[in-house]
């Protein structure tokens, strides 16, 4: 009885005290894509070491979930593995939230096969399209159907889950239409599942972010990508993605900053400036397995934040955006 009485007293006290509110403190709230999370986590960690009086929190609601919160004004910065969609732009506009779009790094989507696969060392975008387009469902089930020179072996496919920004970007770049592909492949939101799947099947082909390949180079083999038959085959690597050679599977990842928060709260601006500082934007990004932007591009985006230029340069996941294009995009709010 005593315990129960005590517990109820505690509960009563708690609810009474709950709305007194915590003391105001400098807090920067970030939420959004789990793909961008490692970068923001690294930034937040180092930032808090340098600025003991400012606190930063990072969530992983997903790019879509992050934008929902962002456009309701619940968070200051939204992590995004794809550009803001027109529906999200509208939601932000209706709520009067102005945003600054800042690319922070590149991710190189990597097509991988089993190490014992000797035939598919390089593939063209057209080969991949043949495999992944919706029409291929149930039809393209053998390597020989992709190219005559390939052996007569079953083709087993692994890919990112259909709710991920990775899937959206891959389908846009390869199939030519965002969010459209065959459905008969093993999909997982957890890239480690895909790593295990491809590593254990000599007939497999899959795709995911470069970081997952680099951690498992012994178990997997990356396919060199050719834009067309005549083009050179390019290996997925940090260098090739950074120089824009690895196309069309290099994609930018972003943070979106609430302009009002950046203007009225110095801690938000300070965190974004720290994020963009070339020292951190190269070293920390590399450390967590992503591709840093070239110095020139970093400068442009630093300038964009300094001038508080709002709007987006995108209308949906653009395919094969080189860093130069990213810099030149006209911003529309």
């Amino acid at each position: 009885m005593k315990i129960i009485t005590l517990a109820s007293a505690l509960a009563l006290l708690a609810t009474g005290a709950a709305f007194n509110g915590a003391a105001a403190q400098a807090l920067v709230k970030v939420d959004g894509s789990s793909t961008v999370f490692p970068v923001t986590e690294a930034m937040a960690e180092e930032f808090q070491k340098a600025n003991k009086d400012i606190k930063v929190t990072v969530g992983i609601s997903g790019t879509g979930g992050g934008f929902k919160k962002f456009c309701r004004g619940e968070i200051d910065i939204s992590d995004a593995s794809r550009p803001i969609t027109s529906a999200e732009q509208k939601a932000c506009k209706e709520a009067g939230i102005e945003y600054i779009e800042l690319p922070v790094a590149l991710d190189a989507l990597t097509v991988i096969v089993h190490p014992s696969n000797t035939w598919a060392s390089e593939m063209t975008v057209a080969d991949l399209k043949k495999i992944w387009e919706p029409e291929a469902q149930g039809k393209i089930t053998n390597w020989k159907q992709v190219r005559d020179s390939y052996p007569d072996r079953p083709l087993v496919l692994y890919g990112a889950g259909v709710d991920s920004g990775t899937y959206d970007y891959f389908t846009a770049a390869i199939v030519g239409k965002e969010h459209s592909s065959r459905g008969d492949f093993t999909a997982s939101e957890d890239d480690n599942v895909l790593v295990q799947g491809v590593a254990g099947d000599p007939n497999a082909l899959g795709f995911f972010g470069l970081a997952y390949y680099e951690e498992n180079t012994g178990k997997l083999k990356a396919v060199k990508i050719k834009v067309d038959d005549a083009a050179p085959a390019v290996e997925p690597s940090v260098e090739n993605a950074r120089t824009g050679k690895y196309q069309p599977l290099s994609r930018p990842i972003f943070i979106y900053v609430n302009k009002k928060a950046a203007e009225t709260r110095p801690e938000v601006a300070k965190f974004v400036e720290f994020y963009q500082d070339p020292k951190h934007a190269v070293e920390l990004v590399k450390e967590v397995g992503y591709v840093p932007l070239p110095e020139a591009a970093l400068k442009v985006f630093q300038e964009r934040f300094k001038k508080r230029e709002i709007g987006t340069g995108f209308t949906g996941s653009k395919v094969g955006v080189s860093v130069e294009d990213l810099v030149k995009e006209k911003l529309v709010y």
Partner: peptide, 22 residues
């Protein structure tokens, strides 16, 4: 959240009423 590098405020304080629910 997923990344949070600070703790909630302490429930014990040195001024009256000595505990808080922040």
């Amino acid at each position: 959240l997923t990344f949070i590098a600070f703790l909630p405020p302490s429930p014990v304080q040195d001024t009256f009423p000595f505990i808080n629910f922040n």
